[in-house]
Amino acid sequence: MFCFTKRLLLVVLLACVSLGVPPKAHAAEPGSYTVEIADVSNSGELAASLKEKGYAASVPAKNMWVVDQQSNCAVWIGRNVPLDMLRVVIPEAIKSNPYLKFFYVVGDRGEKPPQSVDNTVHVGGSIEAALVKKLNVIDQKDMLSALNKASDLAALHQYLHEKNKPVKDEKDKDKAAP
């Protein structure tokens, strides 16, 4: 009887673990990765929505570069953040901020951010940084399509790498006034 109870409890526990957690989040190891959301407009709602889906999401304190949805229109993607998690977070972020237009894998240009950044998606990066990096605008539909089509994380990273390649003879931010 006692053994049966133990076995029953074990089965129930395993069932809870395997069924109670959203399958996508489960695959993304939600405890290991985080979403940071710039404090603009409805960022609190986005954080709550992602938390409901099992992800660790936070809205850090504002700094002077956190302005509004239009100026904070970049998504900085940590290189270790799993594809399954991105497939949940980025569509939600786009729904929350229709101005998101820069999507960049941190480290794609050889930067070496702190390790925690590799495990973080930052929604609401500054357009100033996107322009300094000479990133290219990625249409939201294209981004969502790429998310769905990517066979694995490396494929998505490669897509973003290609899309963000500096355009020849493009705008020079340091150019003088006319």
Binding site: N63, V66, P113, P114, V117, T120, G125, S126
Partner: peptide
């Protein structure tokens, strides 16, 4: 130190 908004140190 890392500035997450500006994606820079």
């Amino acid at each position: 130190e890392w500035n997450a908004t500006l994606n820079r140190y």
